[in-house]
Write a protein that binds this DNA or RNA. Structure first.
Length: 607
DNA sequence: AGAGGTGGTG
DNA sequence: CATGCACCACCTCT
């Protein structure tokens, strides 16, 4: 690829005064594509200081010292970044967007993100988002020096020559990557999915900035209650196992001493199998709950509390932002091979559902004067399966709003479907339900059998009855598996691809790996279409928030659910809009069955 | 530092 | 022959 810059001697200009910035903008305003990058003293836009803002074209980078040039009072700078006609070229735009909005008041529009483009182009093959270093090597053969980036951490001094050179190259190198990726996206028919990622990342950035309110004092109370329970069961456990160890029951001062570490799987196996004489292959709850032994019972109780405390205790409260007093998780919009979001620090997508003892979700509340609006798609993946497979029976059931698992059971066991089928034949419905879910994961008859606790033969029989009821579902899923094996990828209707690394036939693990690919390929278009719809909903909702002048925004998402925080007087109207926009987004893909989304307005995160 | 086990979510 | 998708956090152990 022909470069418009010298990687060893990149052209840059260090901007320290408003008049210098005016001169730079004079040049940049002629460019249809602007490279953008920022350097700060840290990663958090609220607690770190913005040091540099680099703006450039494919030949030169203008490196603005944000401590010297008052960007907040610079309309011309803001107008350039917010110009909807000009493409802003960034790597991981979400990060820069947050800094630029918080610290300079500018909100990027119309972006191209080399990181997200790289991620959609390698989904399934690579576990993490591509770095700029990787992309610049791959597309331009340039080995970027990234050591300098670390020098910005907590940096308070004058900007050095090395820092300038490094910062300049960052914006320049994105141009050739951009050109190469666009060609690749066109070749792979992935322009639409890339555009969706680019558009939604700004809504994701807004969501992260907003964060979520958590009731810290009550959270601590709940944790304290759980700790009491954990201690009770821990003590009981040590008391119960003492006979199996004999010595070491007290230390030199007469205090009782633990015989073993309950949290150690190795020590537990030793206790349960060698000392107690059970014959367990694993200590997970699946196996423990099949055993009736006092030690095991107490262990299971202990584990329940230990899990809640370790995963959702103080470690989660430590993530509260000192400036905003709220939680601002890091959402990775290409965090999964299927296109779903992942979430971390903290992962609010795995907060337990409310229970009496641990009502965690009740402690996520709106700010004073606001409400939380929660809406999720109902049975969304089932609807996607019905639509994509085109199965007439499944479509009919969803169109008529029947209880889908009861209807399935009525077809499987040749019984009439009635309003009270669920009450009449709970057992049959209980057989049909796991098949419906399992199928979307590519589950086999054997897997089904072990899950519902029947023989392999019975499992096969049920599976056969299910597929006889929904014949097109079988054909659809089988075709997905076959195509993935043949082509090496699967796709959603939008064009979101997932690639597969097919094993060599001589690989001893060949069968198992091929089986895995087939299961992933059966699931990907379903889970991926859910993701496509949620991301369109993000884009639509962000547009509506701005258009309607809503005081509030999206605060959270959990795969098929979106939570927003809206000023009280606008919350009811917004609830309707949120559901409508979620449905509108889903209907871009789902046309043969109805899509439903019911909103809930309240002071707690619930659904 | 990384792997394996366990368990929380959709 | 193996046999349910997608994640992340915490713990222990090496």
């Amino acid at each position: 690829m022909e470069l418009k810059f010298d990687p060893n001697n990149p052209k840059y200009k260090y901007i320290q005064t408003p008049s210098e910035l005016d001169a730079a903008l004079e040049v940049l305003e002629k460019d249809p594509v602007i490279g953008v990058d920022v350097e700060g003293t840290g990663l958090d836009p609220y607690t770190s200081t913005l040091l540099l803002v680099q703006l450039g074209n494919e030949e030169i980078s203008y490196i603005i010292d944000a401590r010297k040039v008052p960007l907040k009072e610079f309309p011309r700078y803001k107008a350039l970044l917010e110009d909807p006609k000009r493409i802003k070229l960034l790597h991981n735009a979400k990060f820069d967007y947050k800094f630029l909005k918080v610290q300079t008041g500018a909100r990027l529009k119309n972006i191209y993100d080399t990181m997200l483009a790289g991620a959609v182009l390698t989904a399934g093959l690579v576990g993490k988002n591509p770095s700029l270093k990787e992309l610049s090597f791959k597309y331009c053969g340039i080995d970027l020096e990234k050591g300098v980036r670390k020098t910005f951490a907590n940096y308070l001094g004058e900007i050095t020559e090395a820092q300038l050179k490094y910062s300049g190259l960052d914006t320049l190198v994105m141009f050739p990557i951009f050109k190469a990726q666009v060609e690749e996206l066109k070749r792979e028919d992935m322009v639409k999915v890339a555009k969706l990622e680019f558009a939604s990342t700004l809504a994701v950035a807004e969501m992260e900035l907003r964060g979520m309110c958590i009731n810290v004092p009550k959270w601590k109370e709940v944790i304290a209650g759980l700790e009491e329970k954990r201690k009770k069961y821990a003590d009981e456990f040590q008391e119960l196992i003492r006979p199996y160890y004999g010595t070491n029951s007290v230390d030199l001062f007469g205090n009782s001493v633990d015989s073993m570490n309950v949290n150690s799987q190795a020590q537990l196996m030793d206790l349960l199998n060698k000392r107690i004489g059970l014959n367990l292959i694993s200590t997970n709850d699946e196996f423990l709950k099949a055993v009736d032994h006092p030690v095991v019972n107490v262990l299971r109780d202990y584990r329940k509390y230990e899990k809640l405390i370790s995963a959702f205790g103080q470690s989660l409260l430590d993530k509260v932002n000192p400036v905003t007093g709220r939680l601002h998780p890091d959402y990775n919009q290409m965090g999964t091979a299927t296109g779903r979001f992942s979430c971390k620090d903290p992962n609010l997508q795995q907060i337990p559902r409310n229970s009496e003892e641990a009502p965690f979700r009740k402690l996520f509340n709106p700010a004073p004067g606001y409400k939380l609006v929660t809406a999720d798609y109902s049975s969304f993946e089932m609807r996607i399966l019905a639509d994509l497979s085109g199965d007439a029976n499944m479509i009919k059931a969803l169109k008529e709003d029947l209880d889908i698992h009861s209807y399935t059971a009525s077809l499987m066991f040749n019984l009439p479907y009635t309003e009270d089928f669920k009450k009449q034949h709970p057992d049959l419905r209980q057989i049909a339900k796991p098949i419906g879910f399992g199928l979307m994961y590519g589950m086999s008859a054997a897997g089904l059998a072990s899950q519902i606790g029947v023989s392999k033969e019975k499992g096969e029989e049920y599976m056969e009855l299910y597929f006889k009821s929904y014949p097109s579902v079988r054909d659809f899923l089988n075709k997905l598996a076959d195509d993935a094996v043949k082509k090496g990828w699967s796709t959603t209707p939008l064009g979101r691809k997932r690639w597969y690394k097919r094993p060599s036939p001589s690989d001893p693990d060949y069968r198992r790996q091929m089986g895995g690919i087939q299961r992933q390929a059966k699931n990907h278009p379903i889970q991926g279409t859910n993701a496509d719809a949620i991301k369109f909903a993000f884009v639509f909702l962000q547009e509506r928030l701005e258009k309607e002048g809503i005081d509030g925004g999206i605060t959270h998402t959990v795969h098929d659910e979106i939570v927003s925080e809206i000023r009280e007087d606008q919350a009811e109207d917004w609830a309707k809009i949120q559901s409508e926009e979620m449905v509108r987004a889903a209907e871009l893909f789902i046309t043969k069955v109805p899509v439903k989304s019911d909103p809930y307005v309240g002071d707690e995160w619930e659904h």
